[in-house]
Design a binder for these strands. Structure first.
Lengths: 139, 139
DNA sequence: TATTGACTTAGAGCTAACTCTAAGGTTTAT
DNA sequence: ATAAACCTTAGAGTTAGCTCTAAGTCAATA
């Protein structure tokens, strides 16, 4: 099953422009062409794009994703590097989640702050030390 | 307790350049100056910078943070807008956490993939359908 | 008082990741 | 066979968020 670049773009929620950009940056070394030079995408290529999206979602820059793709092309001699890279991504994502949860705590406090201020009609009710219900029901 | 811009930068883990940039963009309408035009930062200003960092951590662009700061200056008439904004931030952060958790699942799969490939010395062991221990002990 | 170091501004420069344009080649549908 | 709708490339343009520079002012120390 072979797809054109725009069919692939649609399926992967990208644009054809973006896929060509990824290709130009060396992120798609596996994508093949017809005799006349037109790219076609196999299931394996879609899987490659999924990996790119996954690594991007971890905050990895394009250049480092290229390094990974180069390792993939190089073969079994780079298994250790690739393993180490994914372990690093794991801890990176875990700390991003932790940070977002701390951010969420602050945001929840602000939700409470503005909810109560709104009910009171003024922010002034928070002029003294705030009584934020840490352990109570927040509803 | 009044701090200079570089003391503030150090304390907040920012640069003086960045703080001036935020000020130029209208994110610090509360920061006052000496007669000769030099900024000084109070505890309240540090709190403001904390809010900016928090909103940035939710992925909010500078321009929208400015909108929020404008509302703060405007006073109690904008309490509803500010409340709604924080509710939106809350759902935004919650979905970012969910997405990161899905990303983490894929990364964990890849860690397993490369760990087992590394142990086998080759990626070929994954040529057939993968037997990823979904419900078993992973390490 | 003079020098050093921190402050000010306007504005230029940088980087990442697209995003788009122009000019041309290929494929498909009538 | 010819028009429409794709595909290709090189390279220019865009955006956000800094980051830095230059030229000058202000404050603290020897």
């Amino acid at each position: 099953m072979k797809l054109t670049i725009s069919e692939t773009a649609e399926k992967m929620n990208l644009t054809a422009h973006t896929i060509r950009y990824y290709d130009k940056e060396g992120l798609l070394p596996f994508v093949e062409r017809t005799e006349s030079g037109i790219r076609y995408f196999t299931d394996n290529d879609l899987e490659g794009l999924e990996i790119i999206k996954c690594l991007k979602a971890t905050g990895m820059p394009i250049k480092e994703i290229k390094t990974f793709m180069d390792w993939c092309v190089e073969g079994d001699t780079t298994l250790k590097e690739r393993y180490r890279m994914f372990l690093e991504r794991k801890t990176a994502v875990e700390s991003q989640i932790l940070e977002l949860q701390q951010t969420l705590d602050r945001i929840n406090y602000k939700c409470w702050y503005y909810k109560t201020a709104l009910e009171a009609g003024t922010e002034k009710i928070h002029d003294n030390a705030p009584k934020y219900p840490q352990l109570e029901n927040l509803d």
